[in-house]
């Protein structure tokens, strides 16, 4: 059943694929943070059309599958515009846009938790909009939501195999290629499954510890204020 020798032969092929998976995860996550911030700030804009547009875009992206969005970006955008992006760039853009909409909700909750007085104080100090966001609101809104952001890092990691549909050579596509070359499917898919399981379990353990430390520190802070 399980052929260890064959499994060992597979490892060299999986190493670069693992690097691609991790690269896509990290780049996708950074884009998701960026888009998330943009959506969250636009969702609170003073101009109603901007607010409405941002919320509609978020709603639409959240309601449709990542796979179809990746197809749209990879196969349709080059036909509609002169821009043709390679699979990696398209894939991380799709991940970033898709999870940016989730991230915007995370940031929104963080921003809502900043006391009103902070906004009023910024107005009183005559700070510009930009300065208010960058120096007053975001530094208070982001730290409490860091553990939740970490959860989305794991979610993005688990979603990277979807990008094999647009020919990104990540772990699962490598397993498929190996399987079709040797007609032995059990080992490659099992190795990839265990790899995904191990990485996300280790990560979520780390995030849980971070969460505990974080909430502990924050409780202390509150206690200190009293």
């Amino acid at each position: 059943m399980w052929d260890s020798e064959y499994a060992a032969q597979l490892l060299p092929a999986f190493l670069p694929a693992f690097a691609v998976t991790i690269g896509a995860t990290i780049t996708g996550f950074m884009l998701a943070v960026l888009f998330g911030l943009l959506f969250a700030i636009a969702g609170r804009s003073a101009a109603a059309p901007v607010r409405w547009a941002s919320r509609s875009v978020v709603e639409f992206i959240r309601s449709t599958p990542l796979l179809v969005q990746a197809f749209f970006l990879y196969y349709s955008v080059p036909m509609l515009t002169p821009v043709a992006m390679p699979a990696f760039a398209t894939g991380v853009l799709a991940l970033g846009l898709h999870y940016g909409t989730y991230m915007s909700e995370v940031f929104r909750s963080g921003i809502d938790a900043v006391p009103r007085g902070q906004w009023e104080a910024s107005t009183a100090l005559h700070l510009s909009k930009r300065k208010t966001w960058i120096s007053v609101i975001l530094p208070q809104a982001i730290p409490p939501v860091i553990p939740v952001m970490g959860n989305y890092l794991i979610v993005i990691f688990k979603e990277t195999p979807t990008l094999m549909a647009i020919t990104l050579v990540e772990l699962l596509l490598t397993a498929k290629t190996e399987a079709s070359a040797t007609y032995r499917v059990f080992e490659p898919y099992t190795i990839v499954g265990l790899l995904f399981l191990a990485v996300s379990l280790i990560f979520s353990l780390g995030i849980r510890r971070l969460e505990k430390k974080w909430s502990f520190g924050r409780e202390n802070e509150k206690g200190g204020l009293r």
């Binding site: 794991i154 688990k158 195999p161 499917v185 898919y189 399981l197 379990l201």
Partner: peptide
């Protein structure tokens, strides 16, 4: 709960469809 939340759905789907027949 812990196991299946940590598992990537697409990898699980491949495993169930392609690897399970070997068992």
């Amino acid at each position: 709960v812990e196991l299946f939340r940590a598992c990537s759905l697409l990898v699980l789907l491949f495993w169930v469809y392609f690897a399970l027949p070997f068992l």
